[in-house]
Structure formats: C-alpha cells, structure tokens
C-alpha cells in the first residue's frame, strides 16, 4: 500500500482559465483537474502544493457512491474559498507552500475518484496564476493480511512476576486444565473430521421437519 509519506501517482491537467469563446480576458478563475488513474477510490490524508499567485482555492471532490449501494458518482465541495493570499493585490503568500490536511476539509475526503481545484485571483495585477507541485497523499490503510491473528498474539498479558492462570488454578484445587484442554482439542479434531467427511450426495428428501410442502407434491 501507499505510504502516507510517498505521494500518489496521479494525472494533473494543466490549469484552464475561464473564458468565453475565443476571447481571452482576465476572468480571475482557473481550474486544475486531478485524476487517479487505475486506482480504486482513495481516502485522502493530505494535499500539498506550492502557490503561484492564486488568491483563494475551492476543491470539488468526485466521490464514489459505493457506500449507499449505488453506482455512479457525485461531486461534493471539499473546500470553499480557502485563502492562500491574505491580500490578493499584495505579494504575501503568493509563493508559499501549503499543506491541506483532511481535517481542513469541510467534508471528509474519503472514497475520492477525482479532484477539481478551482483557483480564484480577483486582482488584475497577476495575469497568470496557478498551483505547482501538487502532491496527494492517501491515508495509510490497514492491510488486513498483515494483521496478526488472535492466536499469534501474546497469550495473556502477564507480567513476569504473575503466575500463569493454569498454575493458579492448580493451586486452588481446580481440575487439571492441561489435561482437559488436551482432550477438548481431540474433540475438536473429531468434529473437524465429521465436517470433512460430509457427503457429496443427497438422499433427496423433500420434507421439512417430517412434513411435506404441499406445493412440492404433484400427481405424476
């Protein structure tokens, strides 16, 4: 799985500026699209980028609807008018590094298939504005295969000075648990055997609890 440290590989489309027809004018609005190719929906932990004269940022997230048993996607606003430059006309923040954590989002960025960054620059001072070095980091997912099964973990959390329960039980005059356990394990083996030898053929009984379903009986 992807580590939280290494960014996800994703396709980042170049910034598109809002325009009407062929005419170029300063609309003050641009869009960057980010796609995650060949990957299932991801849970985003962190997005980092370097600003390049963008005043405010909104993020739309394309979220898979698999949770509600529906196929398809919806667009959700993840971030609304996040200020990158406190004063759009001034330089401050125009070249800063930003890290957006999942807690900064107004909606948890889980199960995301694509992102759209909507960049705004109201000041006419800056003709072009964009974001650079965009990196998306996924949440560290717990790999179920790597988890230790219960029986591998330490038997009982005992300190060294404490006695094992089986020794305590022996002292209190309880029956020998080791012997009982041994025999129970044998029973388990026997049970296992009955499961394994289950027949692959059926006798062809149709009755349920000794009585027949009337619809199954027919005059043939």
């Amino acid at each position: 799985m992807n580590d939280a440290e290494s960014p996800l590989s994703c396709t980042i489309r170049p910034t598109k500026y809002l325009s009407i027809g062929e005419s170029m004018f300063h609309s003050g609005c641009g869009v960057i699209e980010i796609l995650f190719p060949n990957m299932r929906p991801i849970d985003i932990e962190k997005i980092s980028f370097v600003n390049n004269y963008t005043a405010a940022l909104s993020i739309k997230m394309k979220i898979a609807k698999s949770a509600s048993n529906q196929t398809g996607h919806t667009w959700v606003t993840g971030l609304k008018n996040y200020q990158l430059m406190p004063k759009p006309h001034c330089e401050t923040g125009s070249q800063s590094y930003f890290h957006l954590m999942s807690s900064d989002f107004c909606k948890q960025p889980n199960e995301v298939c694509a992102l759209r960054f909507i960049l705004r620059q109201p000041s006419p001072n800056w003709k072009t504005f964009t974001l650079e070095e965009i990196y998306v980091h996924a949440k560290k997912t717990k790999d179920p295969t790597n988890e230790n099964p219960k029986w591998l973990e330490s038997v009982e959390n005992l300190s060294a000075s404490e006695m094992k329960p089986r020794d305590q039980a022996e002292l209190k005059g309880l029956p020998d648990t080791e012997q009982v356990s041994e025999k129970m394990q044998e029973i388990l083996q026997l049970a296992e055997k009955t499961v394994l030898s289950a027949p692959n053929v059926e006798l062809g009984r149709f009755d349920i609890d000794g009585s027949y379903e009337i619809n199954l009986l027919s005059y043939t």
Partner: peptide, 15 residues
C-alpha cells in the same frame, strides 16, 4: 478454535 481451548484460557475462566 484450538486457541479458544488452550489451558490458560480454561484456567482463567475457571478462576
């Protein structure tokens, strides 16, 4: 299943 039947588990439930 065998883990459930280990001696220590039996002993601690008995105790």
């Amino acid at each position: 299943a065998a883990y459930v039947l280990r001696p220590d588990k039996l002993a601690s439930s008995l105790l």
